[in-house]
Nucleic acid binder design. Structure first.
Length: 576
RNA sequence: GGUCUGGUAGUGUAGCGGUUAGCAUAUCUGCCUGUCACGCAGAAGGUCGCGGGUUCAAAUCCCGUCCGGACCGCCA
């Protein structure tokens, strides 16, 4: 029999009517003769009452936790002193019960939820997803996805799909390869992003494109990274950077308003890359708390503390009183993030004790003034080459956030702009692109190409940062072939090499390319932050663990000899 | 590749040289007609991840390994 309604949709209109409900047995309370069952479906729960004389009794008596059941009976208002909110105001007096599917004892108690080890939840993901908390995340994701589609469609964007089986191009990440059966020895690559395709769509005249695109990168995982993930990919023609930022802002404000009823600022704050790094030690600063890095390089220059005396950069963080153990832990963080060490000082009156205090005698007053450190408070200092020093202290800043619960409630969004166009790779001694090789440099900086100041070239590239997570990034693209040549030249691509690797794309650029640019949002990350989840896995229906394996489906798995033969492949498994 | 951290009944945990390996919950049985984390009584359930070592004695200490998790490298 068809169910009357979802459990949470039963209202006073159904009161004293015969209704049929279906769902899972969330809990069973057997009082001997009288049985109560809490039935759960995706909408909520409803208490079912089975009286001992009821024809439903024998069937209900067989039901166990997580079994699927159907009940028909009269919907009643609960006794007044027992009513709860929503469907908790009602109960169903069953006169017919059907056990649709008896469940074996589940491997974990669904009601324990969060307390259960994640690998067990992942192995039995379909059970984990029965938990209301998990269902709510799936639901929110679907709502955001629908809102994105509606908003961008209304703005004139076209949703276009791009291939998943495509060509490997030398971009940033490692590709996942798919062997070709029809041409043995050749491989497709799964796209790291639809980057080239979306630019080709601009060349094709689509003008405004978006797609919720699956992307694949074969790199090590993190709490906010999966090997296959979803990107909201956007590209627009005949626009400048501010046009792209404007659409992005309006879209994000719309999503937060409609889905979370949260107001985001208009406009979003903007920080340049330089400002973000210098002040917060990160290109994705968490702006839910202050704690800026303070500049003290010249205070220590030529001083008694030799480690700092000639350092290009010395930065300091002022925080509350910390224990030695906490400082040791923070030093570990600093070292893991590239610092040689983490110096510290404790304010005592108008001077300092502990740590490197014997070196700071005459600069104590100036340190106190600049940092505003309170009595008993701690200063944490890192020195070195500017980027190393600020990065290490930026990591310490985030560690302090976690240690002292500094982050405020809610959402803090910002644009990070003016990223460097080029990055010097110390290991290989070569220049590389920071964003991607088609990113347009700032027009005012073009003259710096090929000079020793080319690291100062600013790109028309920007990241969208939310609560310390990079949730989006994009750029204006190069549409001038001469600039493209300069860019390839800077990163050591000869015209031949460029043509070999991006030939079809460079051909396309030569046939009339509009000025264009775009952005890609990490959709999973956005959902993670919006839903307050601690990991990206919480907002993906069937995620992979930290080692890239799907504990439920047990992927990846070995291929059979026949499959390999058909593909012309042989496998050598790592022998030492 | 590296750093840190964990692995004890189905689940969550205590124990950290000598315990019958404890507790909670789930499971099973009995009792119970207004419960709602129902209650009460009882039962069953553990190669203490795996291998080696130290010791009279190892869940406990040491080494290795496997499996989780966080981070660094990596991820335009």
């Amino acid at each position: 029999m068809k169910r009357t309604a979802y459990l949470a949709d039963l209202t006073s209109a159904h009161l004293d009517q015969t209704v049929t409900v279906q769902g899972w047995v969330a809990r069973r309370r057997d009082l001997g003769k009288l049985i109560f069952i809490d039935l759960r479906d995706r909408s909520g729960t409803l208490q079912i009452q089975i009286e001992p004389e009821s024809p439903a009794f024998a069937e209900a008596d067989r039901m166990r936790g997580e079994s699927v059941a159907e009940f028909t009976g009269m919907l009643r208002l609960r006794p007044e002193n027992q009513r709860k909110a929503g469907s908790g105001a009602y109960e169903l007096i069953a006169d017919r019960a059907t056990l649709l599917s008896l469940a074996v004892t589940p491997p974990f108690e669904l009601s324990k939820g969060r307390e259960v080890a994640e690998d067990i939840r992942l192995k039995y993901r379909y059970l984990d997803l029965r938990r209301p908390e998990m269902f709510e995340k799936l639901k929110m994701r679907s709502q955001v996805s629908a809102a994105i589609t509606a908003f961008l469609t209304a703005e004139g964007f076209l949703n276009v799909e791009t291939p998943l089986l495509t060509r490997s191009t030398p971009e940033g990440a490692r590709d996942f390869l798919v062997p070709s059966r029809q041409t043995p020895g050749e491989f497709y690559a799964l796209p790291q992003s639809p980057q080239l395709f979306k630019q080709l769509l601009m060349i094709a005249g689509v003008d405004r494109y978006f797609q919720l695109a699956r992307c694949f990168r074969d790199e090590d995982l993190r709490a906010d990274r999966q090997p296959d993930f979803t990107q909201l990919d956007i590209e627009m023609s005949f626009v400048e950077q501010d046009d792209i930022l404007d659409v992005s802002e309006r879209l994000l404000r719309h999503l937060f308003k409609t889905v979370l009823n949260e107001e985001l600022p208009d406009p979003f704050p903007r920080l340049t890359y330089q400002q973000a790094m210098n002040t917060y030690g990160s290109d994705k600063p968490d702006l839910r708390f202050g704690l800026p890095l303070v500049e003290v390089t010249e205070l220590f220059r030529g001083g008694a503390f030799t480690a700092f005396a000639s350092a290009p950069s010395v930065k300091v963080l002022a925080t509350s009183e910390l224990t030695r153990k906490q400082i040791d832990e923070l030093e570990r963080v600093a070292k893991q993030n590239g610092a040689g060490g983490l110096a510290w000082l404790r304010r005592e009156g108008e001077g300092f004790s502990g740590g490197i205090s014997k070196f700071v005698g005459d600069m104590a007053t100036e340190l106190i003034t600049r940092t505003g450190v309170k009595e008993g408070g701690t200063l944490l200092l890192a020195a070195g080459e500017w980027k190393k020093a600020v990065t290490a202290l930026g990591a310490v800043r985030n560690a302090l956030r976690d240690l002292l619960s500094l982050a405020t409630e809610g959402f803090q969004v910002a644009w990070i702009t003016d990223f460097p166009q080029l990055n010097y790779d110390e290991d290989s001694g070569t220049w590389t692109y920071m964003h991607h090789p088609f990113t347009a440099p700032h027009p005012n900086d073009l003259a710096l190409f090929g000079t020793e100041r080319q690291h100062e070239i600013r790109a028309q590239a920007y990241d969208l940062v939310l609560n310390g997570f990079e949730i989006g990034g994009g750029s204006v693209r190069i549409h001038d072939p001469a600039v493209q040549q300069q860019m390839f030249g800077a990163i050591g691509f000869t015209p031949e090499a460029a043509s070999e690797q991006f030939g079809f794309f460079l051909d396309a650029l030569s046939f009339g390319t509009p000025p264009h640019g775009g952005i890609a949002w990490g959709f999973d990350r956005l959902m993670m932050v919006m839903s307050g989840a601690a990991s990206i896995r919480e907002v993906i229906a069937f995620p992979k663990n930290n080692r890239g394996s799907d504990l439920m489906a047990q992927a990846p798995s070995a291929a059979s000899g026949a499959q390999l033969a058909e593909l012309g492949l042989q496998v050598e498994v790592g022998s030492e």
